[in-house]
Computed example of a mutant assay.
Amino acid sequence: MSVGVSPAARTAMALWISHLRAIDGAASHTLTAYSSDVAGFLAFLHRHRGESLGLAQLAGLGQSDMRAWMAHERNRGLSGRSLARALSAVKNFIRWLAAREGFDATHVLSAKAPKYQRKLPRPLSVEAAAEVLEQVEVQAQEPWIAARDSAVMTLMYGCGLRVSEALALKGSDAPLPEVLRIRGKGDKERLVPVLPAARKAVADYLRLCPFPMSRYEPLFRGARGGPLNPRLVAKSMERARLGLGLPATATPHALRHSFATHLLAEGGDLRAIQELLGHASLATTQVYTAVDQARLMQVYQAAHPRA
């Protein structure tokens, strides 16, 4: 952080990060990103104002300061999406600091994020998802590793789990129950139904796994018995994608997108899908309605080509 930022401001930022970790249960990568965004904001203010930046200066921030910072970020090539994330971090910090120090943060909190075109998720088709699971099951040389990769990806597609959530499962979670308790982002818990196919895939993996399964150790193991690295899941998916000729968007996370999109296409309730995915906001889940509409339009245009 810039040397022009006062010790009091540094301490406040450290306390804010501790608050996010302890009270809000923010994930480590979120804390890293927020810390970097706010540190960059404070460093800019020091240069922009030409004075040491303390709590009094933070309490006196105005609209011109916010506009100058956002213009600086855009001029150095920051995308609208990234700037919106940085602004969210800055607002979170200033809101917390204002409540703690008792000042009015209206000028900061009223700053509007730039508009940007939100990228739609890129799910696989139902057929492609099935082909991926079949391909993963046969492409590894060792049968237990093939069964492991198949189990991980079946959980992601069949239950809508994130890679991190699947790899966080412990030996105590096996054999998988009909309903699994998942601890997701922000340390939030949700209940996820487990399809028979997913339970069978995990049971097949456990039957072949050469390592003893302690209830406190990771369910999914690497080749030497340690926790399975998510990069190996990505590599397995990449081999399947190349073997099937699928686009680069066919990533492990695309299986989670496919879970949500296929449920919606079959008449699934949006609120229920939100709960299954563990989204904090329904707005996050609503992006899948746009995906479904886009696919419907593609089918319509293929069936009714223009003359």
Rank of each mutant, 00 (worst) to 15 (best):
A302F: 07
L246S: 02
E142L: 15
A240V: 05
A113C: 06
R162I: 03
H253E: 11
T289F: 01
R85Y: 02
F44S: 07
F41D: 11
K112N: 06
F44I: 09
Q286L: 07
G80E: 08
Q274F: 03
R231Y: 12
A307I: 03
H46D: 09
G171P: 09
N75M: 13
G62P: 11
K185G: 09
F44V: 09
L282R: 02
A294V: 08
P218R: 02
Y216I: 14
E137G: 12
A260Q: 07
P121D: 02
T11Y: 06
P121G: 05
V291D: 08
Y216L: 14
S64P: 00
S214C: 11
H29K: 12
P230Q: 03
E101D: 14
V3N: 12
A303Y: 04
D149E: 13
A27H: 09
R67F: 08
S35G: 14
L228R: 00
R21T: 14
K115L: 09
F41I: 06
P121T: 04
S82W: 01
A254I: 05
M1P: 11
A146K: 04
M1I: 12
K235A: 15
A129Y: 02
L206H: 05
F93K: 00
V192M: 03
P193T: 01
I182W: 00
V291R: 00
A248T: 12
V126R: 13
T251L: 09
D37V: 12
D149Q: 11
E73W: 00
K188P: 11
A12E: 04
A265G: 15
S2M: 09
V194Q: 03
D173N: 14
Q141M: 13
S64V: 15
A250R: 07
R74V: 08
Y300M: 10
L246E: 00
G77E: 04
E178T: 13
F259P: 03
V90Y: 00
M1S: 14
L169D: 01
